[in-house]
Simulated assay, not measured.
Amino acid sequence: MYSGKYTFIHVIKPRIKLDDPLDAFGCHGVSRIMGSILTGLFATKIVNSHIKNGLFYGGGWHLIAVQVLGTLFTIVFVGIMTTPIVLPLKKLIPIRVSRESELMGRDLVEHGETADYSVDFERR
Protein backbone atom coordinates (compact mmCIF):
# COMPACT_ATOMS: atom_id res chain seq x y z
CA MET A 1 0.00 0.00 0.00
CA TYR A 2 1.36 3.40 -0.97
CA SER A 3 1.45 6.38 1.35
CA GLY A 4 0.00 9.76 0.45
CA LYS A 5 3.51 11.20 0.16
CA TYR A 6 4.62 8.51 -2.27
CA THR A 7 1.48 8.92 -4.36
CA PHE A 8 1.88 12.70 -4.48
CA ILE A 9 5.60 12.62 -5.31
CA HIS A 10 5.54 9.83 -7.89
CA VAL A 11 2.06 10.09 -9.42
CA ILE A 12 0.43 13.50 -8.89
CA LYS A 13 3.50 15.77 -9.06
CA PRO A 14 4.59 14.59 -12.53
CA ARG A 15 1.04 14.89 -13.86
CA ILE A 16 0.58 18.48 -12.66
CA LYS A 17 4.22 19.31 -13.56
CA LEU A 18 5.00 20.76 -10.12
CA ASP A 19 8.54 22.13 -9.93
CA ASP A 20 9.62 20.86 -6.51
CA PRO A 21 12.98 19.12 -6.98
CA LEU A 22 13.52 18.56 -3.25
CA ASP A 23 9.93 17.35 -2.75
CA ALA A 24 9.46 19.79 0.12
CA PHE A 25 5.72 20.07 -0.44
CA GLY A 26 5.38 16.36 -1.21
CA CYS A 27 7.06 15.39 2.06
CA HIS A 28 6.12 18.15 4.46
CA GLY A 29 2.97 19.71 3.02
CA VAL A 30 1.18 16.49 2.15
CA SER A 31 2.18 14.92 5.48
CA ARG A 32 0.91 17.88 7.47
CA ILE A 33 -2.38 18.01 5.56
CA MET A 34 -2.94 14.27 5.92
CA GLY A 35 -1.95 14.31 9.59
CA SER A 36 -4.27 17.17 10.37
CA ILE A 37 -7.25 15.55 8.70
CA LEU A 38 -6.51 12.08 10.05
CA THR A 39 -6.43 13.55 13.56
CA GLY A 40 -10.13 14.24 13.09
CA LEU A 41 -10.64 10.57 12.33
CA PHE A 42 -8.40 8.85 14.88
CA ALA A 43 -8.20 11.23 17.87
CA THR A 44 -9.07 9.59 21.16
CA LYS A 45 -9.48 10.83 24.72
CA ILE A 46 -7.17 8.03 25.84
CA VAL A 47 -4.27 9.98 24.33
CA ASN A 48 -5.53 13.51 25.08
CA SER A 49 -8.37 13.95 27.54
CA HIS A 50 -8.90 17.62 26.54
CA ILE A 51 -10.28 16.86 23.07
CA LYS A 52 -13.33 15.13 21.67
CA ASN A 53 -12.97 11.69 20.16
CA GLY A 54 -12.47 11.48 16.42
CA LEU A 55 -14.98 10.03 13.99
CA PHE A 56 -13.67 6.44 14.31
CA TYR A 57 -13.88 6.58 18.11
CA GLY A 58 -17.49 7.66 18.32
CA GLY A 59 -16.89 11.39 18.41
CA GLY A 60 -19.04 12.18 15.42
CA TRP A 61 -18.28 14.63 12.64
CA HIS A 62 -17.37 17.64 14.83
CA LEU A 63 -13.61 17.09 15.14
CA ILE A 64 -13.12 16.06 11.50
CA ALA A 65 -15.01 19.19 10.40
CA VAL A 66 -12.85 21.36 12.66
CA GLN A 67 -9.67 19.74 11.32
CA VAL A 68 -10.68 20.11 7.65
CA LEU A 69 -11.73 23.74 8.12
CA GLY A 70 -8.55 24.51 10.05
CA THR A 71 -6.43 22.90 7.34
CA LEU A 72 -8.20 24.81 4.55
CA PHE A 73 -7.88 28.07 6.50
CA THR A 74 -4.15 27.45 6.99
CA ILE A 75 -3.58 26.75 3.28
CA VAL A 76 -5.42 29.94 2.27
CA PHE A 77 -3.76 32.02 5.01
CA VAL A 78 -0.25 30.89 4.07
CA GLY A 79 -0.94 31.57 0.38
CA ILE A 80 -2.23 35.05 1.11
CA MET A 81 0.60 35.93 3.52
CA THR A 82 3.36 34.54 1.28
CA THR A 83 2.28 36.43 -1.85
CA PRO A 84 3.22 39.95 -0.65
CA ILE A 85 6.61 38.61 0.44
CA VAL A 86 7.52 36.67 -2.70
CA LEU A 87 6.29 39.12 -5.36
CA PRO A 88 8.55 42.03 -4.30
CA LEU A 89 11.47 39.65 -3.77
CA LYS A 90 11.10 38.39 -7.35
CA LYS A 91 11.68 41.97 -8.51
CA LEU A 92 14.85 42.33 -6.40
CA ILE A 93 16.54 38.94 -6.64
CA PRO A 94 16.20 36.00 -9.01
CA ILE A 95 14.06 33.24 -7.54
CA ARG A 96 15.15 30.60 -10.08
CA VAL A 97 18.59 29.64 -11.29
CA SER A 98 19.37 29.57 -15.00
CA ARG A 99 18.44 26.49 -17.02
CA GLU A 100 22.10 25.78 -17.79
CA SER A 101 23.03 26.04 -14.12
CA GLU A 102 20.19 23.72 -13.17
CA LEU A 103 21.19 21.12 -15.75
CA MET A 104 24.87 21.27 -14.80
CA GLY A 105 24.12 20.93 -11.12
CA ARG A 106 24.28 23.57 -8.43
CA ASP A 107 27.25 21.98 -6.65
CA LEU A 108 29.35 22.15 -9.80
CA VAL A 109 28.31 25.72 -10.66
CA GLU A 110 28.65 27.20 -7.17
CA HIS A 111 31.46 25.11 -5.67
CA GLY A 112 33.24 23.55 -8.64
CA GLU A 113 32.58 20.02 -7.46
CA THR A 114 29.97 17.32 -7.79
CA ALA A 115 28.15 15.71 -4.89
CA ASP A 116 27.29 12.47 -6.70
CA TYR A 117 30.10 10.94 -8.69
CA SER A 118 27.82 8.24 -10.12
CA VAL A 119 25.94 10.78 -12.28
CA ASP A 120 26.97 10.70 -15.93
CA PHE A 121 27.20 14.35 -17.00
CA GLU A 122 27.95 13.43 -20.62
CA ARG A 123 24.39 12.24 -21.29
CA ARG A 124 22.74 15.52 -20.36
Rank of each mutant, 00 (worst) to 15 (best):
L55N: 04
P84N: 03
F56D: 06
A65H: 09
I46W: 05
H62V: 10
W61T: 12
V68R: 03
L92Y: 06
V97R: 14
I95L: 15
G40S: 13
P14D: 01
P14W: 01
R32Q: 08
Y57P: 12
L69F: 09
V97S: 08
K13C: 03
L22Y: 01
N53V: 04
I46L: 11
K52W: 00
Y57V: 05
P94K: 02
A24Y: 08
S36L: 08
L87T: 12
K91E: 04
A65Y: 11
H28L: 02
L41D: 07
G40M: 14
N53T: 06
P84I: 01
G59F: 06
K45H: 03
R96A: 01
T82D: 02
I46G: 06
H50A: 00
M81G: 00
L89Q: 10
I95E: 14
N53G: 02
W61E: 08
G29S: 05
D19A: 00
P94E: 00
G35K: 14
L87H: 03
G54V: 07
G54Y: 08
H62P: 10
I64V: 15
L63Y: 08
I93M: 09
K52M: 02
Y57H: 15
T39E: 10
I80L: 12
R15M: 12
V78W: 02
C27G: 06
K52L: 04
W61P: 15
S31C: 09
R15H: 07
K91Q: 05
L89N: 04
T71W: 04
W61L: 14
L63H: 07
L72C: 05
I75S: 00
I95K: 10
S49A: 11
I75K: 03
W61R: 08
I93N: 04
G54I: 10
T39C: 14
I85K: 05
C27H: 07
I16P: 14
C27I: 13
Q67T: 08
R96G: 00
W61S: 03
P21S: 03
P94F: 01
I64C: 07
T71V: 05
I12A: 01
G58P: 12
V86E: 08
N48T: 05
S36W: 13
V68Q: 04
F77W: 13
G26C: 07
P21A: 00
I46K: 15
V66M: 11
I95S: 09
G59C: 07
F56W: 12
V30D: 11
I85A: 00
K91R: 11
T71K: 04
L22R: 02
F25G: 01
T83A: 02
V97D: 09
T83P: 02
T83C: 03
R96E: 10
T82I: 07
R96P: 10
D20S: 02
G40L: 14
V30C: 02
G35T: 13
N53F: 05
I64D: 09
D19G: 01
V68P: 09
P84G: 00
V68Y: 05
H62A: 02
R15T: 06
S36D: 12
I64S: 06
A65Q: 13
H50D: 09
V47H: 08
T74R: 01
F77I: 05
L38Q: 13
P84S: 00
I16W: 08
F25T: 10
W61F: 13
L89K: 05
L41A: 09
